[in-house]
């Protein structure tokens, strides 16, 4: 994390960069992002090089990382930690394929900046099974054929586990509503509902 005091060091860096003519040739486009960049161009480029430290746990493994602030939790998992079970479906919080648990709560990892997860404990689909033993929800998804192409499946399963844990799986209709943040284009919804319903009715603590 960028410490608050350290954050004041911008001037030094800006001064340094002003001495270099590295970025003077930058031409601007009418995009909003560039309008914002109209001033202090050099500083902004300095930030491009900036990575901040990040400590988090993923599937009970501790990581000490350096990340650009703009990296999302989803891209961190997939592109840097190579935990590709978590999927990118829309990148805008509109499909649920990227659902993971952060401190036990289901979230869309695509809209969470990695840097916002300092000190947090993340569980992804890779961390759900205990060794070779499938999590009951994973087994139920296989049994009820709760997927076809399988791309939304990790997000569905992470969401489903949370749905039961939250106490929002008391009826099929409640499951339907609380699973509506996970889109399945193959249309496996009824099978997904059956799988969750069975796990819930099974009464096991999951």
């Amino acid at each position: 994390m960028a410490e608050i005091d350290k954050n004041q060091s911008g001037d030094t860096r800006r001064d340094f960069l002003k001495k270099s003519s590295l970025f003077t040739a930058l031409s601007l486009t009418p995009l909003t992002v560039l309008k914002a960049a109209d001033q202090k161009v050099d500083e902004r480029f300095a930030e491009l090089f900036e990575k901040i430290p990040l400590n988090l746990k993923v599937n009970n493994k501790a990581y000490t990382l350096k990340v650009e602030p703009r990296v999302t939790l989803l891209d961190l998992l997939r592109e840097q930690l190579h935990l590709t079970g978590t999927k990118k479906g829309c990148d805008h919080g509109q499909c649920g394929a990227c659902t993971v648990h952060v401190d036990g709560v289901r979230v869309n990892s695509c809209l969470s900046l990695a840097a916002m997860n300092e000190g947090k404990s993340i569980t992804t689909i890779e961390g759900l099974a205990k060794g070779d033993e499938l999590h009951p929800m994973q087994a139920a998804f296989i049994k009820h054929d709760g997927f076809q192409c399988g791309y939304c499946t990790p997000g569905q399963i992470m969401s489903a586990v949370a749905c039961v844990r939250e106490g929002h799986a008391n009826s099929k209709d409640e499951i339907r509503e609380y699973m509506s943040g996970n889109i399945c284009r193959c249309g496996a919804y009824p099978n997904i509902v059956d799988a969750i319903h069975e796990v819930k009715e099974g009464g096991k603590v999951i």
Binding site: T84, I125, F147, G150
Partner: peptide, 17 residues
């Protein structure tokens, strides 16, 4: 059951990216 079910529910199934 699907022959690739386990890979799909565990996140081990590898898609192109």
């Amino acid at each position: 059951d699907r022959v690739d079910g386990i890979e799909k529910v565990t996140g081990k199934a590898k898609y192109f990216a």
